[in-house]
């Protein structure tokens, strides 16, 4: 059986992201967070290990934040002199599951498509303007390059006596500046290269594909919604 079209996985990840913001209860969020997280991280782990790191940092940050703004209810654990209450855990769980669902769905999408397929399908099925479709597709090509740049920047920062990972806004800025500078220069030349290769001439043939794989993707969204609302 062929794999689902990029349009269907794109819409799937959009739908899961929307549900992650609509659902409020941890039980509902678990219905979309766990399956998408498990599936996404198992198929996308090799290509996007950095997302796991980002997720871990985000959950840790959420927990610290929850200790300040939502540490209410009965105590459930102690961290030295600090009482961790049920409210902080609930808030961390809710946001953690939400992030897990979004990251998992994004990984499913990224891992099951290539930029070229994505351009063709977003143009032909969703009728997205070709410039926008190319930009989305090219961002997928840029990720590995930016990951490589990021590793080099980390090494350079260590040499210069700065933190490897950003903590303060100044750190973030000093990492983003070289990343964006190199990325911008690359993007300009890639754009010129794409135009010299006839991007302006690109004709879009509208063609919608909806077969068994796409039906299964749609059914899986429906199933997750039903599970979320089971008593």
């Amino acid at each position: 059986m062929r794999k689902p079209t990029p349009t269907s996985t794109f819409l799937y990840s959009l739908a899961i992201t929307a549900l992650a913001f609509i659902f409020r209860e941890p039980r509902q969020l678990a219905a979309i967070g766990l399956p998408n997280g498990l599936l996404g991280f198992s198929i996308g782990f090799r290509r996007s290990r950095w997302i796991i790191l980002l997720l871990a940092i985000a959950i840790w940050g959420t927990f610290l934040n929850a200790l300040i703004v939502a540490n209410t209810g009965d105590p459930v654990a102690y961290m030295g002199p600090l009482e961790v209450r049920v409210g902080a855990l609930n808030a961390t769980l809710t946001i953690g599951l939400r992030l897990l669902a979004i990251a998992g769905a994004a990984l499913i999408f990224f891992s099951s498509t290539s930029p070229r397929e994505l351009i063709r399908h977003l143009e032909a099925e969703l009728r997205l303007p070709k410039g926008l479709a190319f930009s989305i597709a090219y961002s997928l090509r840029l990720f590995p390059l930016m990951e490589r740049d990021f590793r080099e920047i980390q090494l350079a920062r260590l040499e210069r006596g700065y933190r490897r990972f950003p903590i303060t806004p100044t750190d973030v800025r000093s990492i983003m500046l070289p990343l964006l500078s190199v990325g911008y220069e690359r993007a300009v030349w890639t754009g010129i290269g794409a135009e010299l290769r006839g991007f302006a001439l690109r004709k879009v043939r509208v063609k919608v594909i909806f077969g068994l794989p796409e039906l299964m993707v749609t059914a899986s969204i429906a199933l997750q919604i039903i599970i979320a609302f089971l008593p």
Binding site: S114, R116, F134, R186, W189, T190, G193, L196
Partner: peptide, 26 residues
Amino acid sequence: AVLQDPDRQLAMPTPWDEASFLLENL
């Protein structure tokens, strides 16, 4: 056209996609 730096020219993830890009555009 062959530009100075391949990393600034290659827009697609695989050699097949890269070589197809121009023909699809045309």
